[in-house]
Design a binder for these strands. Structure first.
Lengths: 141, 141
DNA sequence: ATTTATTTTAGAATTATTCTAAAATACTTG
DNA sequence: CAAGTATTTTAGAATAATTCTAAAATAAAT
């Protein structure tokens, strides 16, 4: 079932990507990388990826899904966006302002609104209205 | 043990605050409002507030802490900032960009970097470096 | 081929938060 | 004020996302 090498090329690209990220090319990692990077850019939760993997006939444990996503993230080939159901900090300062978040310490520091300019907000999709704009600047030592 | 009415004034201010937010002035709510609004602006987690309440000799259940914080938030007298341990979306687009987050649907939509200008970043505190700047614009119908 | 280091795994554990249904309390009306 | 009704609080269980554990499997190095 050769295809002129097109699949081999994609395969090689994935393997190269993992290698240059300093990751061993194990079967689960390569398989997940295919799901993640085989199409255009995408946002996906751990759970959804797990479903996709199962649907594709791959048997990969939940822990591996999480491990792999975190490894890809640490290696810089995946970005993490946190939105819902976070550990919430409640802030008595309800004026429009933003935050530094000190990783590790779990500490928040206010940034007064006009220390950041989030001008030029993009127009929101038809039928939706903006309920909030949150900027979090993450910090480490 | 009168004090010339200073405590009564603070008490009255808290009560007024709850009232005008459309909240009944129950004992637990008033007590928590004192902890939250009695000093300058603060960031606090549910757990930390619970500890403070206990330390102050108040016996308030965990559920009430959460209920109260959410009610204050809905009423607009408290702001919520989500940072750690969120339900994470992993994004294969690692270029600098931001997101719309559609509440309810739990859907993320990319905003290309230059559709928002987060100029004028504040300088980070001594000894820290910025590891990321995340803007999430929350949307509802 | 053997050794050594890294990964994967199933399942349990953890953590933040929400749910449930009953008991307590606040507001309202007579 | 007394009684009724609606709202809150509560303890404890439930849920959901994620991480941990320690053993089995696999990859890379010798």
């Amino acid at each position: 079932m050769r295809d002129g090498g097109r699949n081999d090329e994609r395969q090689a690209a994935i393997v190269a990507k993992l290698k240059s990220a300093g990751l061993r090319t194990t079967r689960p990692r390569v398989a997940l990388a295919h799901l993640l990077f085989g199409q255009g850019d995408r946002h996906i939760t751990a759970e959804a990826l797990h479903s996709e993997a199962r649907a594709a006939g791959l048997s990969i444990s939940q822990a591996t899904i999480y491990n792999t996503l975190n490894q890809f993230h640490e290696a810089g080939i995946l970005r993490e966006v946190q939105v819902e159901k976070a550990r919430s900090y409640f802030d008595t300062n309800i004026s429009d302002h933003h935050h530094f978040y000190v990783e590790g310490e779990g500490r928040l520091i206010d940034i007064e609104q006009n220390a950041i300019s989030v001008d030029k907000l993009p127009s929101s999709p038809e039928g939706f209205r903006v309920t909030g704009v949150d900027v979090v600047i993450r910090l480490t030592k």
